[in-house]
Write a protein that binds this DNA or RNA. Structure first.
Length: 502
DNA sequence: GGACGGTGAAACTTCAGGTTGCCTC
DNA sequence: GAAGTTTCACCGTCC
């Protein structure tokens, strides 16, 4: 079958679903393809309706300035078709899901996002791509995942049955699919506890919550987990616990109270007895931070170097929590390295050498910091997305994680006696939250004012809240439109009144 | 002769996703 | 593996 043929057959399948007045989920292997496929389907549909037009408008205007992606989604939604992947804004995802549940959107083209978690059943599930690029190259997706997708077919409350359809490109592929996904067994599930960062975090939180007070307690606890059941080798688990404890101690997150204890420490013979969290360690556990991340942040803050907003952002970005980083593309390599020269002095940890194995990953994290840095310097969102080839939803997701890390950074600095840095960290956090230069922070205290409107006001010489108080609502309307002008005028007078009362 | 622009084929790149953590400045 | 993007040779046109 040629690809044109398979396109036609696929489109026929979709049309057939619509003719039956049913809904379908279409699974594909990339975000780009989800968008393209949705467009192809939408182009073949003529009719729209008033409700869909409204939904489309709502989707388009989720951001102050609609991005290309917003417009693309809004356009297909008019035809009752949508795409769905991690790059969408949360609000848009929510709308698409709701409208699908209500039956207004008939077809969703999506990446595997929709196979998990969310309960969005459809009469028909069409799996267009069963191969995907991953760490093993272009390969078959796991059986477990395909079956997860099949499971979306059939809505208990509406249909007696559901259909899951896989698309094969030829006879041989069809056989392979049958073998692999229909007759095949799903893969075994492995415990995630064995992964170092998870293990570290758990260990510290057990100690911090007072659940485990000795190394023996810890061994007992871990030996009852699914991990131990699978792993079987208790001796090795003991060894791993011992090793990790000495790291946590070295990082000053735990301490040993030397009391008599018959239990022998498997790893660190010098210490025995009760394990207690330090105040710092307890806070790390409360913040749900990976102890290694916390340690790296603390170490960075203690360096002699002068610290800037970039330093703080970069320090928080170079952590596990913000992975996966943006990837430095082949073409960008030189440019990113050049920018590294400009920022070298603001980086608070050792930069790997170009021949080091970690160098590429370091550059990726550096590029990710640059995205954040451009964001707080008010780069226009659309060009930022273009420049870093990142989608609006991904940018928001990353910013949210960075916000949490900056808060954590603030807490760690406070506990570690670095009051001198708190101002800088706080300011950085605010700038990241709103994506603005420092000069706009005052205006952003107003509700309904984001980076775009605040910049507009500032450029019109309204720079502070007292400027807002002074200017007439009439003048303000010219800049911000009627609704916003009225709204913020009310806010400043209300603020004034509470002040007077005090 | 040389600058410029259009064209298309070849070469090169890129490619899913992820729960909650905190506090409200 | 497939789709999108960039590069580059080639050709025609105009000054």
């Amino acid at each position: 079958m040629s690809s044109k043929d398979s396109d036609d057959k696929f489109l026929h399948l979709v049309k057939d679903t619509l003719k039956k007045d049913k809904q379908a989920l279409v699974f594909v292997n990339t975000k780009q393809r989800a968008e393209r496929t949705a467009e192809i389907i939408a182009e073949s549909i003529k009719e729209s309706n008033e409700h869909l037009e409204e939904v489309s408008a709502e989707i388009e205007n989720v951001l102050a300035r609609p991005t290309k992606q917003c417009k693309r989604l809004a356009k297909v939604v008019k035809k009752g078709v949508a795409f769905h992947h991690s790059g969408l804004m949360a609000k848009q995802r929510e709308i698409v899901e709701d409208e699908f549940k209500k039956g207004n959107i008939k077809i969703i083209c999506c990446t595997p996002t929709l196979a998990y978690g969310l309960n969005l059943p459809a009469f028909r599930v069409i799996i267009r791509d069963l191969k995907r690029y991953g760490y093993r190259g272009y390969a078959w997706i796991p059986t477990l995942e395909a079956q997860q997708m099949f499971g979306r077919a059939g809505r208990p409350e509406y249909d007696k049955e559901g259909e899951a359809i896989c698309i094969a490109n030829d006879e041989r592929e069809a056989e392979e699919i049958l073998e692999r996904y229909i007759n095949g067994e799903p893969e075994d599930i492995y415990s995630k506890l064995a992964v170092e960062p998870v293990f570290r975090t758990y260990l510290l939180s057990l100690i911090s919550a007072g659940i485990s007070r000795t190394e023996e307690d810890l061994v007992n606890f871990f030996s009852k987990t699914f991990w131990a059941y699978q792993f079987k080798d208790i001796g090795r688990i003991k060894f791993m616990i011992g090793g990790m404890l000495s790291k946590l101690k070295e990082w000053k997150f735990i301490e040993y109270k030397s009391e008599s204890n018959s239990f022998t420490i498997a790893y660190d013979m010098d210490d025995g007895g009760i394990i207690k969290p330090t105040p710092l360690g307890r806070r790390v556990a409360e913040l749900y931070l990976d102890p290694l991340t916390a340690h790296k942040i603390l170490e960075g803050l203690e360096t002699e170097k002068d610290k800037t907003e970039f330093s703080i952002i970069n320090l928080c970005t170079n952590t596990l929590e913000l992975r996966p980083y943006l990837r430095v593309k082949v073409r960008e390599y030189d440019e990113i390295e050049e920018r590294l020269i400009d920022f070298e002095d603001e980086i608070l940890y050792d930069i790997p050498k170009p021949y080091d194995e970690e160098y590429d990953e370091f550059l990726n994290s550096f590029k990710t910091s640059l995205l954040f840095y451009d964001w707080i310097n008010e780069f226009d969102e659309e060009s930022l997305l273009e420049k870093y080839s990142v989608k609006p939803g991904e940018l928001r997701a990353k910013l949210k994680i960075l916000d949490w890390l900056l808060y954590s950074c603030h807490e760690l600095a406070k506990l570690n006696g670095r009051k001198d840095l708190l101002n800088l960290i706080n300011k950085t956090r605010l700038r990241v939250k709103y994506g603005v230069k420092e000069e706009l922070l005052d205006l952003l205290r107003l509700k309904g004012i984001g980076r775009v409107k605040a910049r507009k006001m500032f450029n019109n010489n309204i720079k502070t809240l007292s400027d807002v108080r002074r200017i007439s609502e009439f003048e303000l309307r010219k800049i911000l439109g009627e609704k916003t002008a009225k709204n913020i005028k009310e806010q400043v007078t209300a603020k004034q009144r509470t002040k007077e009362r005090l």
